[in-house]
């Protein structure tokens, strides 16, 4: 392509009056004009988060006067102290962490096992099961939440972390995504290990999984994001504040401490920080996860 286009471009440039240097327009600005549009827009997206961070280190006096201070006069950590001291936040943080990490681990394990069986193994009923599972991906949560509540109640799990963990143990999404990825791997590698007498589990563990890092991280990222950020199900399944997750705790806390905005914002920062840090640390694979799961299923 470049070979054919280079002479063509040269020919076109040759017809341009020699005053303008080839391939370059006269510039009014020392930088691309796009910055004039993009910088304010990007700022517009950033300002609410900046305000969140700033107000979490303001004193309530600064927040509640009118008009409120736009910049804290000094870093006031009383909001954080309040949240970490007399409230349940550390407990909620731990609950959220437990639920999310268990969900990630079990989705990886069960997703890989199920996905591998569907991708590579022949067994009675595999087609029916796969189609059924695909169909469940299209079921909206609202349709299942009432019976799921009743099931959890019968299992005696309502109002415990178990009620949050069990429904998120494995999603059809994890199984299906990993199946698709395993199908794209060359079979020969597995067959070689297979001939050597490795069991299926061994092949999966030492041949397939090491090659599947991108898909595994997609499952991990999206599972973590989904469980950490969920509010609907904890709201339904949990009654007592000792079992709250951070999201549920934060909204209840806001309702109870309506005027203590610095503490509410400090709690909000704590709620947001783990996903924010995870995102900033692994932005590229994060975005890849979202686009690939969105566009390629």
């Amino acid at each position: 392509m470049t070979a054919t286009s280079a002479p063509a471009r040269a020919a076109r440039d040759a017809s341009v009056p020699p005053a303008a240097p080839p391939g370059r327009r006269r510039r009014l600005l020392p930088f691309s004009g796009w910055h004039l549009a993009l910088a304010p827009l990007a700022l517009l997206f950033a300002v609410p988060l900046l305000w969140l961070l700033l107000s979490s280190v303001m004193s309530d006096g600064e927040i509640n006067r009118f008009p409120p201070a736009l910049w804290p006069s000094h870093v006031d950590l009383s909001g954080y102290r309040y949240v970490l001291g007399n409230a349940m936040f550390p407990r909620w943080f731990a609950n959220s962490l437990i639920v999310s990490l268990v969900a990630v681990a079990s989705n990886l394990v069960f997703g890989a096992l199920g996905g591998y069986a569907f991708a590579r193994m022949r067994f009675a009923g595999s087609r029916v099961l796969l189609v059924t599972m695909l169909a469940t991906m299209a079921i909206p949560f609202q349709l299942t939440m009432i019976p799921t509540f009743l099931v959890m109640k019968r299992l005696g799990l309502i109002d415990s972390l178990g009620a949050l963990i069990v429904p998120s143990l494995v999603t059809p999404f994890a199984v299906f995504l990993l199946r698709q990825f395993f199908l794209s791997l060359p079979r020969e590698l597995e067959e070689a290990a297979w001939i050597d007498g490795c069991s299926r589990l061994r092949v999966l563990w030492s041949v397939v999984l090491p090659l599947s890092r991108p898909a595994l991280s997609t499952v991990a990222v999206l599972t973590f994001l989904g469980t950490w950020n969920d509010l609907t199900w904890p709201l339904i399944a949990i009654n007592h504040d000792v079992h709250y997750t951070l999201q549920l705790g934060l909204t209840t806390f806001q309702g109870q401490h309506h005027t203590k905005w610095s503490a509410v914002m400090a709690g909000n920062v704590i709620t947001v920080l783990p996903v924010l840090l995870a995102f900033l640390a692994a932005q590229k694979s994060f975005i890849q996860s979202i686009t690939s799961s969105g566009l390629k299923g």
Binding site: F123, V175, R200
Partner: peptide, 30 residues
């Protein structure tokens, strides 16, 4: 193979049928 495969898929099948398909029917009845 079939036995191994079923062992692999059973956890997913349990959760997905138990908390996916069954509730859909239950919801309809409800």
């Amino acid at each position: 193979e079939s036995a191994t495969a079923w062992a692999f898929v059973t956890p997913s099948v349990l959760v997905i049928l138990g908390l996916g398909i069954m509730p859909v029917v239950w919801s309809l009845l409800l």
